[in-house]
């Protein structure tokens, strides 16, 4: 629960109804934010420089390649950003497995049975037959986002490195798998791109709940309102812990 502490208490609001005023909940550490920013940067570069090659006959393919400064430059951008993403992926695993002191099994990111139930309840909620599920620190959607990106990173980095060094790879694996890499890489990249542009951006940008965007990716914080609405179980848990610690100022 160390990350879930309340980090900021601003001036009390003018009505004087509350002692503490607006409070914010720490959603992401700076390290996580920086990883996400690096991810955005490399991901967008990779999409822009990669998609013209996935769809070489599309009208926008030559437009984008010329915009990037020619085919050779496109390739260099894609390779450089790709290597950046590989480094990011390695850093992510090393940091969160070996540096982060929180026990691996205690992480809230593992899928649980509750997520399966929440998933079903979400569908029921969409068709109007149930209440919206109450989420803890991470909803099933967020967990899917994370593990989807994790899987995609592994696939894209491995196949990307195979294609970057095809002849070195062929010292170990047959040509068939180098050939397969091109299929897996582009399919997986298309999946990732569509998922980010449609599903992820709906959840964090376009959805009426957060439109124009959730600022958590910039500040790392959630407001109390957002917290109650999107992560009610976590909110209750944090409040309970604070009360146990005897900090009465947070009891409402």
């Amino acid at each position: 629960m160390s990350r879930q502490k309340i980090i900021e208490a601003l001036e009390s609001n003018k009505n004087g109804e509350r002692n503490m005023g607006e409070i914010y909940f720490k959603r992401f550490t700076f390290n996580q934010l920086a990883e996400h920013w690096a991810m955005i940067g490399t991901f967008m570069l990779l999409v822009i420089s990669g998609m013209p090659l996935k769809f070489p006959d599309a009208w926008w393919s030559p437009v984008i390649i010329n915009f990037l400064g020619g085919f050779a430059m496109r390739t260099q951008i894609h390779h450089a950003a790709g290597i950046g993403m590989v480094i990011l992926g390695v850093y992510h695993v090393v940091y969160h497995v070996f540096v982060d002191k929180e026990s691996l099994l205690d992480r809230k990111v593992w899928p649980t049975l509750k997520d399966a139930k929440d998933f079903w309840q979400t569908i029921m909620f969409y068709i109007g037959k149930a209440q919206a599920p109450k989420y803890g620190r991470y909803s099933w959607k967020e967990k899917f986002d994370y593990w989807g990106a994790f899987w995609g990173m592994v696939m894209l980095c491995v196949t990307g490195l195979i294609m970057l060094y095809p002849f070195q790879a062929m010292e170990v694996i047959p040509y068939a798998y180098v050939h397969l890499s091109t299929i897996v890489h582009t399919d997986e990249a298309l999946l990732a791109t569509l998922f980010i542009f449609i599903v992820h951006w709906w959840n964090v940008h376009y959805s009426p709940e957060v439109f124009p965007m959730s600022k958590a990716w910039l500040t790392g914080n959630l407001s109390e309102e957002q917290m109650k609405h999107e992560h009610p179980l976590e909110y209750e848990e944090v409040m309970r812990q604070m009360n146990e610690k005897g900090d009465k100022s947070f009891s409402r």
Binding site: T122, Y126, I198, V199, S207
Partner: peptide
């Protein structure tokens, strides 16, 4: 997931 987004929007 595109279906889910549409359902979310409708809801």
């Amino acid at each position: 997931f595109t279906g889910m987004v549409i359902l979310d929007f409708l809801s």
